[in-house]
Amino acid sequence: MAATAHFYSSSHNSVVQLGLSSGGVLFHGTAVDDRGELAVNTEEAPTHEKVLVTYDVENMTVSVGGIAASADACADLVQRYMDGRQIVLEATTLGFAELFCITRALIALGVNTFHIIYAEPDNYTKPVGGDSYALSELIPGYKPIPHAVVDLSSDEVEAGVFFLGYEPDRMARALAEYQMIAAKSVKVVFGVPAFRAGWELNAIVPHLPMLSEQGDFDIAYCSASDPGSAFECLERTRDSLTAGAKMFIAPIGTKPCGIATAVFASLFPSETGIIFDHPRKKSKRSTGANVWHLYVVRVDRE
């Protein structure tokens, strides 16, 4: 069955202006900074049943509302919340693995419309005396996520897309662990326009030495805050594949690019795999909340 997705985006000044109806279900992660606390705990926001989602990297299990199971069975955990209510994913607090598991479950259960909210930070924090951002406390490394596993050594994998952010060590580690990536058709994507004018340089400049060594990589851009733009970027790579070939995605850039990756990989599992390094977010990694985004995702099935 062929399918695609459309993203309808709106931007707001606060979580209470998002226009969500009361009585829905909100899937969220653990808040580590101001915007996460606001997204999950603002009393003025519409009342939703709040469901905490966590992912165990080592055991590849997911917990939804306190009930844990293999990530393969995530749809079973989510299904009990599918009772006609508005479904909202709080992407500010959800990590990528949690976001992918829930998104894939919703699409597998036949949900055609769901909402995602995301808050941009007012600013990111830097270590004392440091010039670059350090957003992760611990990065376990590139470990598979069920239903998105990819064999990068296979000739079937022709192309890959890296969405890049502020931490160049993350891409460097991928290239070191998977040296066969250099033989693929690789596109690196920066968030331009960025959340704020000038922030794109914080991502581009640290990656330049690495990209100069990997001269065959294509450089592309998509809006840092628009998952629809990132989704179109992935579609272009998919369209370039030969019949029967596959691609991989490394969603190590902005969360809206991660949203696009989660939806895309859920819709095209036979052609798409994900490599991800599962960073543990630093507490207070950002301060304040700037623009709030509401993304309405509509899946069209043929």
Rank of each mutant, 00 (worst) to 15 (best):
A220T: 01
F195I: 00
L106W: 07
V88E: 14
E49M: 01
K282C: 09
A203I: 02
V51E: 13
P279V: 06
S240W: 00
A289E: 12
M171N: 05
T261S: 14
Y118Q: 02
N59S: 13
F27D: 14
E213K: 08
R236V: 00
E156Y: 05
A197K: 10
V15N: 15
K50D: 04
T61Q: 14
V128H: 11
S63F: 07
V128Y: 09
V51I: 15
R104Y: 06
F217N: 08
E90N: 15
L135S: 04
T242Q: 08
A3Y: 02
K255S: 07
Y124V: 00
Y133A: 03
S63I: 08
M60D: 11
K284N: 14
E98K: 09
A194I: 02
A68F: 00
H115Y: 13
I181P: 06
V150N: 03
E177I: 03
L52Q: 12
R196E: 13
K282D: 01
A105E: 09
L201A: 12
M82P: 08
V299R: 05
F190P: 12
M210A: 00
V51Y: 10
A119K: 04
Y221S: 14
T54V: 12
A183H: 10
L241M: 01
A69S: 14
D169A: 14
T54K: 00
R104A: 11
G288V: 09
R298T: 05
A262K: 07
D33L: 02
V161C: 09
S70V: 00
G258R: 01
R236S: 10
F190M: 12
S223H: 15
S21Y: 05
A260V: 04
A203S: 11
D131C: 00
F195N: 09
T242G: 12
G23T: 02
A203F: 04
A97C: 10
V111P: 05
Q79K: 14
